[in-house]
Design a binder for these strands. Structure first.
Lengths: 346, 346
DNA sequence: CTGAAAGCGCTTACAG
DNA sequence: CTGAAAGCGCTTACAG
């Protein structure tokens, strides 16, 4: 070992073929075997202090970072959890993502986020890319419908948590949320508030469609005229709220309530209603979904449907960690629930 | 090979020790060697049609998904690019993330998103987890200051693109954006509009601070009173905009302009100003940052600073793909630029 | 067109 | 407390 080699802070030429430092080089530099290096990193209490110092010095000098792929391959354990969301931009899943990151980190896992897109064309390829990395768990936003996708996931043997939706046939574990129940509850809430010409402004994604259709059915069951639904591309925006309200006004005569598939969209509806001089909620009740920060903060404040995304994240992390320890959650299917947060707009 | 084995659609018991299907089992089922299976997947033109059919049937029957970690280890190529953002929730980086995903996918890479948090306490651990997976490229939001972090990244030999900020000493490649220039431009813009008592409402993150401080310096250089700055925890929200305006009004007497570090915050300021009966922009000019959808859609619409996040994503993808082909971009440092989008609020 | 051998970087029993 | 050997699952020259 040349001392100059250890103390050098030179960095390898960027144009050189990428060749990371390996345990072998660290072992050589420290004058020990590869296995001792491995132990110095993973079980330092099994290594003598003097040896430990030598190894750590070599690691620092060479800028060694263990290749986790190699370790995972050997151990069949990646310490990696994948979550698939339609879009990282949409703030709806922010609470879940934040809490998933936090919970998993505490348990020694790293979270990686994949985007599936609201329309799932390349879902199969994406699934293969994910399963191919052998994560210790997969969290899905929504339930998987495609038979091929289900088969792929089942066959992988990886713990799967489907979330934010419900099904009688989960692939593995399920954090269940009924969008049917939400749509029905919203229609009943608006009906109780005296609103009869209900309408829906909705992102064109699967779960928002379920809520919209359920609201339609429920309103009809309540003896109200069938609600108009206007779909717009997801993820939904403030501008779509403004534009969408105008579209609804053209389509349905005299609507007196709008249920929006996001709070941002609801804020847009509110802005448009204000611009038109409509009284909210007197002439037009507005409801959102997600109970984002903006719902409480708008003037008037927005009545919204709250879903505890942080709880979803925490429970999913818990379930996956259990599976990694060769256990199973006592309840592989857990109801998440929701509540309507009453504010000024409806 | 038993036919029943191939046609079985049974899934392995979920409680069984996780043991994925390997090439070996596929080879056995198809009655060929492992290498032929590998070729059937990666270079099917090198395999006879009859053999290909057998292999594909076996793959489908067993639900085989190749272990990408093993392949990457062998090839020293992961087809994985990591991007590190402070928070996936903040919509500021949505455009970059969407375009990064799209561009990289077209080039055969998968993007994984890591969250660093706005305060970077565990950055070192995160960096090791990322480098340890040997991605083919790393995109950083912001520049890396910590010497250890820089050293780690440099030594890894992985192509690095720092973005959304500027520095004279990039680790590798840089998509440069000057927050100093933005702060100065905003102050000058407001000054030109006759605003003298400027203030800043800012998320307490590094780049927003740079903009705020630059605005302060510039205003003083213009002979204006030193702007008050109020910092709030990032990521910033609509509610912080309302609350923040009140805080600024308490701190600075008679402010006539507020530069917010996000459009959502600016929308909150607007809501609060409207609630207070302040005329915008007459009594109070409001500017945002990010040029999000909501900026154009609020009433009044919000003047904002536009940064082309999609271009950042596209260029970063391009740079990394070049490096993977053992080339270097002609220009490893590229200026991104910004522009003030004039609307009603300022 | 197909296959036997070697090796990517790591870690775990098994010995000393 | 330390080390030689084997193997995680895959793919690439090298032979046939």
């Amino acid at each position: 070992m040349r001392a100059s080699q250890l103390s050098s802070t030179d960095t390898p030429s960027r144009s050189a073929e990428r060749s990371s430092v390996t345990v072998r080089e660290v072992a050589q530099a420290a004058g020990v075997s590869m296995i001792t290096v491995s132990r110095a990193i993973n079980t330092p209490q099994q290594v003598s202090p003097a040896t430990l110092d030598k190894v750590n010095a070599a690691i620092a000098a060479l800028g060694y970072v263990p290749n986790l792929m190699a370790g995972s391959l050997r151990l069949s354990r990646s310490n990696l959890v994948m979550v698939l969301v339609p879009s990282v931009t949409g703030s709806l899943f922010g609470g879940m993502l934040t809490e998933l990151t936090r919970s998993l980190e505490a348990k020694g896992y790293q979270l990686m986020v994949g985007q599936s897109g609201y329309d799932s064309p390349r879902e199969d390829a994406l699934l293969r890319a994910i399963i191919g990395r052998r994560p210790d768990g997969i969290v899905l936003t929504g339930v998987m419908h495609s038979p091929q996708g289900r088969q792929l996931l089942k066959a992988s043997g990886i713990p799967i948590v489907e979330t934010w939706d419900t099904t009688d046939t989960p692939i593995d574990m399920l954090l269940s949320l009924s969008h049917d129940a939400i749509g029905a509850a919203v229609s009943q809430y608006l009906h109780a508030a005296g609103k009869v010409r209900q309408a829906v402004l909705s992102g064109d994604d699967e779960r928002a469609r379920l809520r919209a259709q359920s609201l339609q059915r429920t309103a009809v069951e309540l003896g109200l005229p069938e609600p108009v639904v206007h779909y717009m591309p997801a993820p939904t925006t403030h501008a779509q709220g403004r534009e969408g309200l105008r579209a609804l006004q053209r389509a349905g005569q005299g609507i007196d309530a709008v249920f929006c598939s996001s709070d941002l969209m609801a804020a847009g509806v509110l802005t448009e209603a204000t611009a038109q001089g409509l009284a909210v909620p007197g002439q037009l009740a507005v409801m959102g979904f997600g109970d984002m920060d903006i719902a409480a903060s708008m003037a008037p404040s927005i009545t919204s449907v709250h879903v505890d995304g942080a709880a979803i994240g925490a429970q999913a992390a818990e379930m996956i960690a259990l599976c990694a320890n060769h256990q199973r959650p006592a309840q592989p299917v857990v109801e998440i629930g929701f509540r309507i947060v009453t504010r000024e707009s409806a």
